[in-house]
Nucleic acid binder design. Structure first.
Length: 423
RNA sequence: GGAGAGGUGGCAGAGUGGUAAUGCAACAGCCUGCUAAGCUGUCAACGAGCAAUCGUUGCCAGGGUUCGAGUCCCUGUCUCUCCGCCA
């Protein structure tokens, strides 16, 4: 949610930037917010004045009663009724404006960082780096679902029996490899000073709103309606919401957390090749890193997080590329996002395995996540997060890349975690 | 699941209809050989103003009664204690 002060100050610039970079026209929403805000402030000025008069009258009446001057008190009382009526009307109009503003603000995406390339779709994303994959072309290697079948690592059919499509069962060495990856990712993050958290996998409605999943992506989360709780689509939700409604002393910044959780996504509307094997699941494992920083440092922090994720992929020896997302592909809440994709040699395609974003104050404004500096001033903090990493597509790339005639080689860094070097 | 008690500032905790006590912590200033102590001040959101400042709102949430609600009434919600069940 964009801070209203920003819209007040730079309304036209925001409209122009969002149009240029995201190719989205938000002029009507922003202008409406702007006008509603004017009206709201006008209302408040009058409302405050009348309330003030009401308060004065009330305390006078109190004093008169105390002194036993009931007649005078009754005269004053009769004056209050009209005032009361007016206050009631103004208050409801004030609340209406406030609600309309909020509703509109929920529909306006974040202002992209100036370095975001303009563009409509993923084809306009900027490729910052790419491994040369020529050597992997035309090798006629098996896709991971065949490998999973061949070596009995992951059973997709069994998941269908128990739950439904998109809920695979990991078996034997498949399960161990999965666990090894999680452990590896957590340990690496710990070494970088990210404090580990193990958080709830269900969250309440407030948390959903806090990080922006609600109301924008209502249909994407599984909803346990009996208790009105949502299954988390990412660890970002519970971890970031820890700091909802908090004012943090500046010397605690930056705050760095890492957490492993399963992630649940309904993925309504997906079909076909996109969801084959591990490509897109309803339940998957992910290790997420989250940072809360001073506004002045958030972009440096983003670069650091990006290069950290890059080293993870390098340690796993996977071919990959690094993308800077264009405006049209940029998430609703993000100001700048980098994606990492690893190459799937069995499918001859790139698979997104990480997305690292700076949200600036877009989340913190909604969350009321602020910090207090040395001068006792209170300001919104910046929030960032990134996958480090999402498991299924890493697993897919890994299995396909390391296959040979008599099995699958385990990358060196993982061998101490798995206890075996070959499947 | 049953019964009871509760939700007040960063924390503790008083307040049963008339400006939200007090203690601790933290921060700033003053004072004092140093330290400690002491003294003074400091909550947040929104609005008005160039500013000093002023006003409004906020005692879990939403309604209601009243000139006036932390306090009374209704609904919801969460926490705690005991019992039951249970990994």
């Amino acid at each position: 949610m964009l801070p209203i002060q920003k819209i007040r100050a730079d309304k036209d610039l925001i409209i122009q930037k969002i149009f240029e970079i995201r190719k989205q026209d938000v002029s009507s929403q922003i202008n409406e917010v702007y006008n509603l805000d004017l009206k709201k402030r006008e209302t408040q000025t009058i409302l405050d004045e009348l309330s003030s008069r009401m308060n004065t009258l009330s305390s006078k009446i109190g004093l008169l009663y105390k002194n036993g001057d009931i007649e005078k008190a009754n005269i004053l009382k009769s004056e209050t009724s009209e005032l009361k009526e007016k206050i009631k009307d103004l208050k409801s109009s004030f609340i209406d404006s406030e609600n309309s503003i909020k509703e509109l603000l929920y529909q306006i995406p974040n202002l992209p960082h100036e370095s975001v390339p303009s563009g409509k779709s993923e084809s306009d994303n900027e490729i910052v780096y790419s491994t040369n994959i020529d050597e992997h072309k035309n090798q006629s290697l098996l896709p991971h679902w065949d490998l999973c079948n061949k070596y009995n690592l992951i059973d997709f059919e069994l998941g269908v029996k128990i739950t439904g499509a998109g809920f695979p069962v990991y078996i034997g060495k498949g399960a161990i490899l999965q666990r090894a990856l999680i452990q590896f990712f957590l340990n690496e993050a710990n070494k970088q000073g990210f404090q580990e958290l193990l958080v709830p996998h269900l969250v309440n409605e407030k948390s959903g709103y806090g990080t922006g999943q609600l109301p924008d992506k209502e249909g994407q989360m599984y909803h346990a309606t009996n208790d009105d709780l949502y299954l988390i689509p990412t660890a970002e939700v519970p971890i970031t919401n820890i700091y909802r409604d908090e004012i943090i002393e500046e010397d605690r910044l930056p705050i760095k957390h890492v957490g492993y959780t399963p992630c649940f996504r309904r993925e309504a509307g997906s079909y076909g090749k996109e969801v084959r094997g591990l490509n897109r699941l309803h339940q998957f494992d992910k290790v997420e890193i989250v940072q809360i920083t001073r506004p002045s440092e958030s972009y440096q922090t983003l670069e650091n997080m990006v290069s950290y994720v890059e080293t993870l992929i390098q340690k796993l020896e996977l071919p990959y590329r690094k993308l800077k997302l264009c405006g049209g592909d940029l998430g609703f809440t993000s100001a700048l996002t980098y994606d990492f994709e690893t190459y799937s040699v069995g499918q001859d395609k790139w698979l997104e395995v990480s997305s690292i974003s700076n949200f600036e104050t877009f989340q913190s404004n909604r969350l009321k996540l602020r910090y207090r500096n040395k001068n006792r001033e209170i300001n919104l903090a910046h929030t960032l997060n990134g996958s480090a990493l999402a498991l299924p597509r890493i697993m897919a790339s890994l299995l396909e890349l390391n296959q040979d005639n008599d099995g699958i080689r385990i990358p060196k860094v993982l061998q101490s975690y798995t206890g075996f070097d070959k499947i």
